[in-house]
Design a binder for these strands. Sequence first.
DNA 1: GCATATTTGTCCGTATGTATA
DNA 2: CTATACATACGGACAAATATG
Lengths: 241, 241
Amino acid sequence: MAAFPEPPAHAGWLRTVAAEVRTFDRSSTAERVAELLRHRVIEGDLPPGTRLSEEQLVEVLHVSRNTLREAFRLLTHEGLLVHRLHRGVFVPELDEDDLVDLYRLRRTIECDVVRRLERLDPVRLRPLHDDVAAGEDAARRGDWVAVGTANMRFHQHLVALADSARIDETAARLLAELRLAFHTVAAPQRLYAPYVSRNRTLLDLLVTGETDRAAKELEVYLHDSEAQLVQAYRKRPRRNP
Amino acid sequence: MAAFPEPPAHAGWLRTVAAEVRTFDRSSTAERVAELLRHRVIEGDLPPGTRLSEEQLVEVLHVSRNTLREAFRLLTHEGLLVHRLHRGVFVPELDEDDLVDLYRLRRTIECDVVRRLERLDPVRLRPLHDDVAAGEDAARRGDWVAVGTANMRFHQHLVALADSARIDETAARLLAELRLAFHTVAAPQRLYAPYVSRNRTLLDLLVTGETDRAAKELEVYLHDSEAQLVQAYRKRPRRNP
DNA sequence: GCATATTTGTCCGTATGTATA
DNA sequence: CTATACATACGGACAAATATG
């Protein structure tokens, strides 16, 4: 043993990982590994295009190949990894078509959820208030990572108003994939900035019960967001032309 | 060996299966196994509540346990199997809440897709025409299984008009799960019957470009369908009270 | 409630096939 | 084209949890 020449440079994130895997219990090992990798991908620690070597991960996580591969399968179906036969799993590199596709489904779900809201108990807006406040606060501090997180939470809590587990799950996958897109552009910070105040506007409309106007506002909102992201995509520095 | 008292009665489907697994290539073994099991579940050959024994399937499919478990993971994530820790995988038994949840998402997606249609090339309605015709034909023959299949195809082709891979995928999973619900009620045949003509009505509205009316009609349509299915659920014979 | 048998969860070693330098 | 690295797939083993009598 010790036959492994220490993982290559890009794998710095690996070092802190080993202990975490056995932290939780009451779920299968594969799910814990998946949960761990999920966060690494979503946080951008593994940039799009990265290949996840079975050998290295087995070594570092101290799990068997089988278990690791089960975790891969889970994440693959969540869209957070892509699986190329006989080549391994990679963090996906979304292209412009993927962006458009993601926003297409996103508009369908989020706008429809808002449009169908009625007789909404104000208490249920509580998480949204918190998210908006967190976003505004983070923006003041200039902590753009936190702004992004708060924004994602806001939208997740928004669809949660529909009271549908499957809508929640679909939205979660959607937003997770979208995070990948944000990680492929140069300065994702700026992309979140304009939506701090727009989330506030949206929330106000929900508070006053103007769901139709809220739905229309959200529609424009998401179109703008998509346009900005597509633009950032085109301007991004690319390795392979 | 021979310790198994012959798989129980419901497992007759196993016998014809062995050869099929090695038919295709160009995909992994796990995916081929998953594809096979997927069809068996969707077609209702494995009724909801069935446990899929690893040992039996390994025996019959001639694949290793690891490979089989990978196939399980794939299907679990599609909602076609449920995984209970240390107990194995089962064909899910959807309850009333699941039904409501499924229809909630279904209305969101299908209705929104229809509402957003504009300047639709009539050629793209071709698959829908075929599906409606197939449904009507099958209904005349009294082939209710074929009616069900045609109906599922119709709705899949309907959402395909949105030109979104992720919407297609979401809808596919949705409809697959819904099939499970149909298999748990006594006489699913009758449930499809009323929608042969309603599909025709819907299609006519699309042909004339009245997308708003079509969306509203679909909304009512799906509400009715849900109500009927829920009712059938309550009347169904149950083993465990 | 207990002891046993069965089944799943996890790991390992190895052989084979595929993609890429 | 060959060589190499790696993923794919298999089968055996044991531990852990569950089901059964």
